[in-house]
Design a protein around this nucleic acid. Structure first.
Lengths: 347, 347
DNA sequence: GCTCGATGGTACATCGATGTAGAACGAGCC
DNA sequence: GGCTCGTTCTACATCGATGTACCATCGAGC
């Protein structure tokens, strides 16, 4: 039913292989022949059968993107940018949600979909250092995102977690806050973004000659979402813990915390200042707007796709590690003026 | 390199076709043979080559999902749910972002990716009634989302736009609001969600015996996002327009509007009540929380996948149209108490 | 006149699965 | 015994592209 290369070949009076050669830019073809073939393609409305090509070449032009959940804004923005970047390279993306469940995270690595893809951009949540081994004998290109697993032989796109967290904390200290909650560390996790950001938090205190009150280092058990942020800060308030600022380890936690603080009748930033991490869109229109860290939100997806595409095409050497520059984005939650929309930058 | 059916066949002492038959559940196989084959599969770690199967059968098990932008929370949540529903059916999803640009929306319909997919779930933004024709002679299953295009011969999953908008407006009228802004209609659009929701808004006024002040019907030119909501409401305030409520045609507009209203020193809901549409997660943790319409957020993605899968498998009859029940979700933005997290339902 | 290398093109096998046709065998029936 | 029918399995062609090998032509160089 669909038009094949044979049909085009017949129409142009050449062999199927010549049509293939034209389509793939093989150089030794008479201009006149090439024109005849292109004309035939045009006339018949030929479109290549990607499946057949994949079978023959062993490459599909599809890459996988494994992440916890698309409904989490940070990952939605990441996925959108990855798809756009992939488009630039002529690649198609399939997204797999593992929900941060360890079994699913491992299954993604070896599941049937890996046959469909040329490589994987992989953002695990539950995996730990022990699992690094399972990443090594994979037979396809892999690019890691985040800090959960690391291996010197695998391409990696990450963030300057410690330095950025330190900058965030210092921002609060400069504003005169002295009892800053660190919201997000998980005592059972020894690797990942959380401990690195906690280190930045401690470094800032140390550099300022201040001790960290352990009561203010508040673990979150569930995922870093609005509900967890609200619930956890709610518990602190219930317990009568005294604090004048919150450094949440991501924006969703921060926004949930900010919500709860205001529901309880406290003012942000007057009573409690809040800083997040990730610079998701939502924080630019919250009330007040959210001070946050932009960890390189435009660079990360672009680089991840670039690294994977280079591996896929076999033009890459040793493993690379990329950690883009970060930036503190001041917002109303730490006292920066919330600009009215009429004067706000378009984004 | 990879294990093929031939390898499995050799190991089990049968033909490749028999392996295929076992894998595909063909009934006439001796239990003992089946066991030998399954054992061989297990031992060799055989995984089917999906590409080869696709070439032969003409089906890929992949469906497309075309939407404006993943970074828009409504679409991120939709996409996440579609992927999860597809997983249930053993389907894989590729997402294509057309950004609401008409040329890209049309290109999605005929682009190269259609060869990769068994069908398309299609949520256009710029297309109009005139384009319905382009949807008809497509050679693959199509399920339409939204109201931009409609055709009686195509499966459709939509919302009860008019009834829901009427309910939202009546909610505001019941609360005593009399100058309600309708935020979102676009005068250049005669089809789509906007005019239907505007109709609901008008119906509510009519039923209450109230006239609609045309000044309060406020078009938005750009997309329905935070920035547009903030900017547009900002302009109303600059112009000194008198209003005591906003019915925004989606949640992002509503949240942007609510942000701007508060930046200007007005109180929500005391000075201005706000209602949105879509029931995205973000509105459950905004300050105050957002009153909104849940148009069937769990039903829509599930039904879309189901309809497409049925078409794909050829088990569907005539075109179907599904418009799930909607629900008003009360929030602080119209005066419902914002519950503290400690007592809030987990979500 | 002949070889050689650069061009321009073709025929055929192949990627790994599945559809088709049919072989081999035994049971049941007249 | 001969026939049909159901069961179990196999051989081969096929999906549509591309890699390999090879043929043909033409001009240059000796």
């Amino acid at each position: 039913m669909a038009v094949t290369m044979r049909d085009v070949a017949r129409r142009a009076g050449v062999s199927a292989k010549t049509v293939s050669n034209v389509v793939n830019g093989y150089p030794y073809i008479k201009p006149e022949t090439r024109d005849r073939v292109l004309a035939a393609i045009e006339e018949l409305g030929y479109q290549m059968n990607a499946t057949a090509r994949s079978l023959r070449t062993g490459r599909t032009g599809i890459i996988g993107l494994a992440l916890p959940e698309l409904r989490v804004p940070y990952f939605a923005e990441l996925a959108g940018a990855v798809i756009a970047a992939a488009e630039e390279c002529g690649l198609t993306v399939i997204i797999e949600q593992h929900g941060g469940r360890r079994d699913l995270e491992l299954e993604v690595l070896t599941g049937a979909r890996r046959h469909l893809t040329d490589g994987l951009i992989y953002s695990p949540l539950a995996l730990g250092t022990d699992d690094a081994a399972s990443l090594l004998d994979l037979s396809y290109p892999l690019v890691l995102l985040g800090e959960r697993v690391f291996h010197p032989d695998i391409d990696h796109v990450t963030m300057q977690n410690t330095a950025a967290a330190r900058a965030a904390t210092e921002h609060l200290l400069r504003a005169g806050r002295r009892r800053i909650v660190a919201l997000g560390p998980n005592p059972t996790q020894d690797v990942g973004s959380a401990p690195l950001r906690l280190t930045g938090y401690r470094e800032a205190h140390e550099a300022a000659g201040l001790a960290v009150d352990p009561v203010l280092v508040v673990p979150t058990i569930r995922t870093w979402d609005h509900a967890t942020g609200a619930r956890t800060v709610g518990r602190l308030l219930d317990d009568g813990v005294d604090f004048d600022a919150v450094f949440a380890f991501n924006d969703s936690l921060a926004l949930g915390a900010m919500h709860e603080i205001q529901v309880r009748g406290l003012r942000v930033p007057d009573d409690v200042a809040v800083v997040g991490f990730d610079a998701i869109d939502e924080g630019r229109y919250s009330n007040p707007t959210l001070t946050t860290i932009d960890p390189g939100r435009t660079v990360i997806p672009r680089e991840a796709v670039r690294l994977l595409d280079e591996r896929r095409r076999g033009v890459a050497g040793g493993a690379r590690r990329i950690a883009p520059d970060f930036q503190l984005v001041p917002g109303g939650s730490t006292g920066a003026p919330d600009r009215a929309a009429a004067t706000a930058a378009v984004g």
